[in-house]
Every structure is written in C-alpha cells, then in structure tokens.
C-alpha cells in the first residue's frame, strides 16, 4: 500500500498538470459553447423558417455526432479542408460545438418553463419583445436551466478525457503514458479517476444544493 502511495505522490504533479489542462479545455469550450447554445435556443424559436431550420440542423448534428467523432473531425479532418489546428484548439472547438448543441436544448427547456402568465404580464405592460426576453423571460428561464447546465459542465469535464484520442496531454493521456512506461496501469488509472471524482462529486453536490435553493425561491 505504501508503495502505491509513494508512486502516486511521484505521479501526482504530472497528473495534476493533465487535470488542469482538461479543466482549461472544458472551461474554454463552455465559455464558447454556452453563449452559442443560448443563441441557438433563441433562434430555434425565431419567426423566420430559414433561421429555425438552420438552427435545427446545427443542433441535431451537434447532438447526433459522438463527441469522439467531433474531436477527430476537428483534428484529423479539418486539415484536409485547409485548417490545421493544434490538439488544444481542436479539442476546444469540438467540445464547444458539442456544448452549444446540448446546452441549447437545456436553455430552451428553461425558457419554456417560464409561465405563460409571465409573458402575458410583460405584454400587457406594453414591454417590447426584447425587453420581455431580457428582463422577464431570460432571468427566470436561465435560473431554471442553471442546475442542468452545471451538470452538463461536469459531463464536459469528463468528456475532455476523449481528447486522449487526438494527442492532447490531458489527465487520461498522462495516466496512460505513466502506465506504458512503468506497466503500472491500474494504479495510474485509479489515481486519474480519483482526481476526476475529487472535482465531479463535490460539483454534483453543489448542483443539488443549488437546485433546492432555486426551487425554494421560485415557489410562489
């Protein structure tokens, strides 16, 4: 046991580096993906049929394509189309597309959960479409969407392990490399999963707390 602890201590800096890289990729793809998801959630309800159809295509492709395939398209596919990206850039791009598609559905659900009476009250007060959205519908809809959005963010963080397939030196790549050079795959991968758990379990608990809080606030 103490032997394994010794190995873990020795590997920890390297694995933490990998975890940090995964967090950066997850963070950047969410920073890009969630605002895009919000835009898609709004355009999917647009009056224009063209805009609606275009949104549906983007969302369905984003959700229908496995993240691993998106990653490989971005890293191995795009160079044939004249765009060569680093492993980091390709990871962020692919996961941002994935995040945009999924979060657009989460946000759309949140916006639809806003009671019809709220929109009617804003209409009756003569508020413009944009003001109604900005001051009445979005604040309430995003509050509903916040817990599932955070839950999805955790999924994206775990999803960064797929970037292993396109040579990004994130946590799993590091653990695999350690395994390959020491033949101690099991302890290396166990430590990697403990590190994921150390972030994901508290984050999930936080989501639970938040869900209860928001639920209490909204019960009128």
């Amino acid at each position: 046991m103490s032997e394994i602890l010794g190995l873990w201590l020795e590997w920890l800096p390297r694995l933490l580096g990998g975890l940090w890289l995964g967090c950066k990729v997850a963070g950047l793809s969410l920073i890009l993906g969630i605002p895009l998801g919000l835009v898609l959630a709004l355009t999917v309800q647009a009056k224009s049929t063209v805009l609606r159809a275009a949104t549906l295509v983007v969302v369905e492709i984003g959700r229908g394509t496995p993240a691993l395939v998106l990653l490989q398209l971005a890293y191995f596919g795009l160079p044939s189309a004249g765009l060569t990206l680093s492993a980091m850039a390709a990871s962020v791009l692919a996961l941002a597309v994935c995040a945009a598609a999924y979060t657009s559905e989460i946000i759309r659900g949140g916006l639809e959960a806003v009671a019809a009476g709220q929109k009617e009250a804003a209409d009756a007060l003569g508020m413009s479409r944009l003001d109604k959205l900005r001051f009445i519908v979005l604040p309430q809809g995003l509050a509903v969407a916040l817990p599932p959005l955070l839950g999805f963010s955790i999924t994206i963080l775990q999803g960064t392990s797929l970037c292993f397939a396109i040579t990004l030196p994130e946590l799993i790549s590091q653990a695999y490399a350690i395994g390959a050079s020491t033949f101690r795959y099991l302890p290396a991968l166990v430590l990697a999963s403990l590190l994921y758990a150390a972030i994901c379990i508290p984050a999930s608990m936080l989501v639970g707390v938040l869900e209860r809080r928001l639920g209490a606030h909204h019960r009128a």
């Binding site: 009476g117 009756a124 604040p139 309430q140 606030h217």
Partner: peptide
Amino acid sequence: LQKLRRNVGMVFQSFNLFPH
C-alpha cells in the same frame, strides 16, 4: 400593439407578478 397596450392596464386572476 404596444401603442394600444400603453393605454391599458391589466390585472390577472393569478396576479402574474415577476417572482425574480
């Protein structure tokens, strides 16, 4: 519509205050 509604106040059965 906004021009019309500007002159008309409405009170609903279920109040519809903005909870946030």
